[in-house]
Amino acid sequence: NDEAKKEAEKLWKNNKSEDEIKERLERAGISPDEAEQWLQELR
């Protein structure tokens, strides 16, 4: 999970869309709710 979150953070810094980041997190096995929460922390 931490690995996926690091990846999400990297994508965020590269200005990827939130949808793309969420999709990537969900593919890594993170629930949509958790993915949404993680994005809010990044904002």
Rank of each mutant, 00 (worst) to 15 (best):
P32C: 04
G29L: 02
P32N: 10
W12A: 14
D33N: 10
K13Y: 13
A8R: 02
E34H: 04
E23I: 08
K16A: 15
K5T: 02
E18D: 09
L42Q: 03
L25S: 00
K6N: 05
I21W: 07
E34F: 05
L39V: 06
W12Y: 13
E9W: 08
A8M: 09
D33Q: 13
E7G: 04
L25D: 02
N1F: 13
L42Y: 03
R24F: 15
W38H: 03
A28P: 01
E26T: 13
A35T: 06
E18Q: 05
D33E: 13
I30Q: 01
K10V: 09
A28D: 06
K16D: 09
E23L: 08
K5E: 01
L25T: 01
A8E: 01
A28T: 03
E41N: 09
K16V: 15
A4Q: 06
S17N: 09
W38G: 02
L25P: 00
A8W: 05
W38R: 00
L42E: 01
R27D: 07
D2S: 11
E9S: 03
K22E: 02
K6G: 04
N15G: 15
E20W: 03
E9G: 01
N14S: 13
Q40W: 03
Q37R: 12
L39Q: 00
I21D: 00
K13M: 11
W12H: 15
D33A: 12
P32M: 08
N14F: 01
K10A: 09
G29C: 00
E23G: 07
E41Q: 10
I30N: 02
I30P: 00
K6S: 06
E3K: 10
E20I: 06
A28Q: 08
K6D: 06
E20G: 00
L25W: 02
K16M: 14
L39M: 07
I21A: 01
S17T: 10
D19Y: 08
E41F: 06
W38L: 09
D2T: 11
Q37W: 06
R43H: 06
E18K: 04
Q37G: 06
D2M: 13
N1C: 15
D19S: 11
N14P: 13
I21Q: 03
D2V: 12
Q40S: 10
R27V: 07
E20L: 05
K6H: 04
R27N: 08
L42P: 01
L11E: 09
L39H: 00
E23F: 00
L25E: 00
K5N: 01
E41C: 14
N15V: 01
R24N: 08
W12G: 14
N1D: 09
W12M: 13
W38V: 06
K22R: 12
E36R: 02
K13R: 12
E34M: 14
A28G: 06
E20M: 05
L11W: 13
S17H: 04
Q37F: 05
L25Q: 00
E34R: 10
L25F: 01
R24S: 12
E9V: 04
A28H: 10
E26Y: 13
Q37Y: 04
R27Q: 12
D19L: 10
S17I: 03
G29W: 00
D19R: 11
E7M: 15
E36Y: 04
A28L: 15
E18F: 11
K10Y: 10
K22L: 12
E7F: 10
E3S: 08
D19G: 10
K10H: 11
D2L: 13
I30C: 13
R43I: 12
E41I: 06
D33W: 11
Q40A: 12
S31C: 13
K16N: 10
A28W: 15
W12E: 14
R43P: 03
E9R: 09
